Simulated assay, not measured.
Amino acid sequence: MSLLEQAGLAALRRVEPERAHRLALLALRAGLAPAPGLLSSDRLRTRVAGLPLPNPVGLAAGFDKNAEALLGLSRAGFGFVEVGAATPRPQPGNPRPRLFRLAEDSGVINRFGFNNDGMEAIAARLARRPRDMVLGLNLGANKDSADRAADFATVLRHCAEHLDFATVNVSSPNTERLRDLQGRDALAALLGGVIEARDALPRRISVFLKIAPDLDGQGLRDVAEVALAARVDAIVATNTTLAREGLRSAAASQAGGLSGRPLFDRSTRVLAHLSGLTKGAVPLIGVGGIETAEHAFQKIRAGASAVQLYTALAYGGISLVRDIVEGLDKRLAAEGFASVEEAVGTGRDDWA
C-alpha cells in the first residue's frame, strides 16, 4: 500500500462510515485510487458459469450500489464486478445511521435496506460500462412492493442488455421478510419467474442466487435442491449474518447484517456444506470475510470456483485487490496447482 493510500484510509476512518464510503466511491470515479489494470496469469484465468474471468477475485455487491464507479472498478484488478442491489423504483433505505465500523473485529454492520437510485438510473449508467470488464447486477425488491418476487424479474428485464450476469438476492437481512423468499416453495416460484424472464431475452446472461449464512441444515438442503432444479448458473455463499458471537467492538449490538472477518469461518463452513450438497453440479462463489490471499485460497479449497470481497477494502484499501490476486497465484503455485479449477473443493472436508 502506498503512503498516499495509507493517508487516505486514515482520513476516511475519521469520517462517519457512510460518508467515508461515499468519498471512496468519488475517489474511484476521479481516478485517485490505485489502478493496476488487468491482473491475470495462466494459473488464474478461469471460467465460471460460462463467464471467462482473468482471475477469480471479484467485488461483492453493495460497494457500488448505483453503478457510479464502473471505470475505476474495472481498472482495480478485479476478475469480475457486481454492483447493486437495484430495485424497480428508487428507495431511500432505512434511516441513518445504518453503517457501523467494528474496527476491533475488522468487521462492519450495515442495515441499509436496499437504498438505491432505482433500475432506470442504474441501467443508464450500466449502458456506459467499460466493455473489457465482467459485470453483474444484484437484483432486489422494493420494500413496499405488492409482489416482491416479480420485482427481481422486472429489474432483470430492464437492465439485462448491459450485463454479463445477474444475482437474485433473497438473503439480505435488512428488508423485512425478504429472507422468507429462501423457503422452498417461495424460492422455486421466484427463480422460475427470473429464469423465464432471462430465457426470453435476446442474449443469454448468467443468473446467480445469493444465500444467507444463517440457514440451518434443512434450509440449506432445500436451497440447493431448488437452485439445481431451477438451473441457476451459480450460487453465491454467503450474504451477511445476524449472528454476533465473539465480537469486541462497541457497535456489536447494532441491528443489521455483519460482514468482514467475523463472518469468514461461518460462511466458509456453509460454502463447504453446499459444495457437498451440490457435488459440482453448479459453480459456487465464496463470499464472507476474505482479507488475504490465504482466505481466498481456503474458500476455493472449500468449494468455491471464484470469490468476492467488500468489507476488507474499508480496512485494507483498494490495493488489497492486487495483493490478494497476486498472493493467490503464488499460493496455488506453491501447492502444485496449475489452475484454479484444480484446487476447487480439495479441502472441502476440512471445512464441512
Score class of each variant (00 low, 15 high):
M1A: 13
S2D: 15
L3F: 03
L3P: 07
L3Y: 01
L4I: 15
A10V: 06
A11R: 11
R14D: 12
V15P: 11
E16F: 06
R22T: 15
L25G: 08
L26K: 13
L26E: 14
L28P: 15
L32Q: 11
A33D: 14
A33P: 13
P34V: 13
A35V: 11
G37P: 11
S40Y: 00
D42R: 14
T46K: 04
T46L: 00
P52Y: 07
P54E: 15
P56N: 01
A60M: 04
F63D: 10
D64P: 11
K65C: 12
N66K: 11
E68G: 12
L71W: 12
S74Q: 13
S74M: 12
F80S: 01
A86I: 11
R89V: 12
P90L: 10
P95V: 13
P95Y: 03
V108S: 07
F112R: 13
G113I: 09
N115L: 10
G118C: 10
A123W: 03
R125D: 12
R125S: 08
R125Q: 11
R129Y: 10
P130M: 13
M133A: 15
V134D: 04
D144L: 14
D147R: 03
A150M: 03
T154D: 08
V155C: 06
H158E: 15
L163E: 00
F165L: 09
A166T: 13
V168H: 03
S171G: 00
S172G: 09
N174G: 06
T175Y: 04
D185Q: 11
L187I: 07
L191S: 06
E196H: 06
A197E: 11
R198N: 04
S206E: 03
F208A: 09
K210L: 03
I211D: 00
D214L: 00
D216H: 01
G217D: 15
G219P: 02
R231G: 05
R231M: 03
D233R: 03
I235Y: 04
V236M: 01
A237W: 02
T238Y: 05
G246L: 00
L247V: 01
L247N: 05
L247M: 02
S249Y: 01
L263K: 10
T268V: 14
V270N: 03
L274E: 04
G276P: 08
P283A: 04
L284A: 08
I285Y: 01
G286M: 05
G289Y: 00
T292F: 04
T292Y: 04
Q298C: 08
I300M: 06
A302N: 02
S305V: 06
A306T: 07
Y310K: 08
A312I: 00
I318S: 09
S319P: 07
D323V: 11
R331E: 15
R331N: 09
L332S: 05
A333P: 06
G336P: 05
F337T: 05
A343I: 12
G347N: 07
W351S: 04
A352T: 15
